[in-house]
């Protein structure tokens, strides 16, 4: 999915909030492992795995 407009991450997350409850649910899923990871090593590992799956390690800054 390639867009010619530069849709910033922040804009896209706000767009999800603006989409109502369904959007909030998606955001919770998006950030869920990160949020729950504060309390649980299992979720911390899941958050890391999800990130690595989407962003190859060598692309990270």
């Amino acid at each position: 999915m390639i867009a010619y407009l530069d849709a910033s991450t922040g804009s896209m997350l706000v767009a999800a909030i603006a989409g109502g409850f369904a959007g909030l649910a998606v955001l919770f899923k998006f950030f869920g492992h990160k949020i729950l990871g504060v309390f649980s090593p299992k979720h911390r590992a899941a958050a890391r795995a999800a990130k690595e799956e989407l962003v190859p390690a060598d692309e990270e800054q």
């Binding site: 922040g10 804009s11 896209m12 989409g19 109502g20 999800a50 989407l54």
Partner: peptide, 29 residues
């Protein structure tokens, strides 16, 4: 949010899709 995530390098679109983003959310927006 624009300031907070300005340096984000992740594939937000892909992550949102994986989290279940769908046209109904766009319609609500």
């Amino acid at each position: 949010a624009e300031r907070r995530f300005a340096n984000s390098t992740g594939d937000t679109t892909g992550e949102l899709r994986a989290a279940g983003f769908n046209p109904a959310i766009v319609r609500g927006q």
